[in-house]
């Protein structure tokens, strides 16, 4: 089996109100060095297959079809083999 660790983030250029609010919060807490904050989603999906290639293919398909919205979001993922 493979576990996919999937990161969905807002595309560059798309306004991230949550990120801006957190940035302002960090700065007000004294973290003056904070330049930018972007907030995304982290998901873990376990796929029942023994083939890394198949897992790769399946997870990409999931991201394209449901997990990310291509209009506003990008995604990346890493696969880890689990037993």
């Amino acid at each position: 089996m493979y576990k996919a660790k999937i990161y969905v983030t807002l595309k560059e250029g798309v306004l991230d109100p949550q990120g801006q609010a957190v940035r302002a919060g960090l700065i007000s807490q004294g973290f003056a060095a904070v330049e930018e904050v972007r907030i995304g989603k982290f998901m873990e999906v376990v796929v029942a297959t023994h083939s890394a290639t198949e897992a790769q293919h399946l997870v990409r398909e999931m991201c394209e079809r449901l997990l990310a919205n291509p209009v506003i979001e990008d995604y990346t993922f890493v696969l880890v083999e689990v037993v």
Binding site: V14, L15, P17, Q18, A21, N69, V71, I72
Partner: peptide, 8 residues
Amino acid sequence: AMLKNNHL
């Protein structure tokens, strides 16, 4: 697409 309201 729809984003969260800018004031959250």
